[in-house]
Amino acid sequence: MFEAKMLQSSVLKKIIESLKDLFSDANFDCSSSGITLQDMDSSHVALCYLKLRSDEEGFEDYRCDRNITLGVNLVLMSKILKCAGNDDVITLRAEDEPNILTFIFDSKNGERVSKYDIKLMEIDSELLGIPDTEYSCVVKMPSHEFQRICSNLSQLGDSVTVDCHKEGVDFKVAGEQGSGAIKLKQNTTVDKEEDQVSVELNEAVTQSFALKFLCAFTKATSLSDTVSLSLTQDTPIVVEYPIAQHGYLRFYLAPKIEE
């Protein structure tokens, strides 16, 4: 039996909304330590990795007697989650050898209980081994700032060059009709930590990425006030949104490399 009771349905709603356009079908891997989801987009350029830890405060109850994989169509899941109020407590439930995933939405005042079942799918997806590595550069910034940068630069071109150096980080785009550049200086003196821009640098990195994917990742902006970008030359960028009281959502994007 698997049963996870999440205090805030809005968190799951935001997660699924941010994933469903790039990753339409995905396996939720449930174990006693929590829920993980890893999925590649259909062009095999981007990867998402979600981790919701069972021992964090976001779960009121969590039970998983044996490891199970729940193959779900995320577009359908998003439709079901739209039936939940933002303040509803949401319970996910499945049997040990499940064909069905059950969603139960309890309203805050306890007056309304809704139950929805969806059919699970057999999804044949290849799990990739993502190594824990030190990155040459880790940039932390307000998530809305990163969203704005991606959205602004995507007006002019398809790829952005991210240039991390000790003073800060530069984002540059060069298209057929024009070019643009946004310089972000390191700023760790502002009062609120979530408004800071910080750059941890071991080695300078200059790398190009497809803006289409970065813009898609920023659909997760409402999950977190901050986002971190981890870069190493000639390896995928990691865009991480922490999820308070649960874990994190990471996106990996393969670089564009001179061939």
Binding site: M40, E126, I130, A254, E258
Partner: peptide, 14 residues
């Protein structure tokens, strides 16, 4: 010529 890399070429298959 800049080419888009594939994500799986960076991570070994688990």
């Amino acid at each position: 010529m800049i080419g888009q890399q594939k994500i799986y070429s960076f991570f070994r298959v688990a």
